[in-house]
Amino acid sequence: MARQKLKEIVIDRSWCKGCGICVHFCPTKVLEIDANEKSVAVRPEDCICCKMCELRCPDLAITVLIDQGEDNEK
C-alpha cells in the first residue's frame, strides 16, 4: 500500500476550544495552538495521515482529508 497522501487538515475554528489534545498526541508535531487558542496545522507536510487528531478531538472540529489518488487506493 502506498503511503497515504494528505489533501488538507480542516479545522473548524468556531468549534475548536484549544484543548491541545490533538497537539500533544500528534506523532509528527504537525499541529500547534495559535494566539487565538485554536489548533492550526503548521507543518502539514509532516502529516502521516494517522487521523488520531480527528478521532480524539472532543469537539469534533478536525477532519483529515486524504488525497484519493490512484496509487492511494486500498
Binding site: R56, P58, D59, L60, T63
Partner: peptide, 26 residues
C-alpha cells in the same frame, strides 16, 4: 461525514475544553 449525525445548531457544544465526553461522542 461524522458531523452529519449531529444537530449542528447546538455546536460548539457546552462541554468544557478537553472534556472526554466529547471524544466518546466522536
Amino acid at each position: 461525514a461524522i458531523q452529519d449525525y449531529l444537530r449542528q445548531r447546538y455546536f460548539p457544544h457546552m462541554w468544557c475544553p478537553g472534556c472526554g465526553h466529547g471524544t466518546i461522542l466522536n
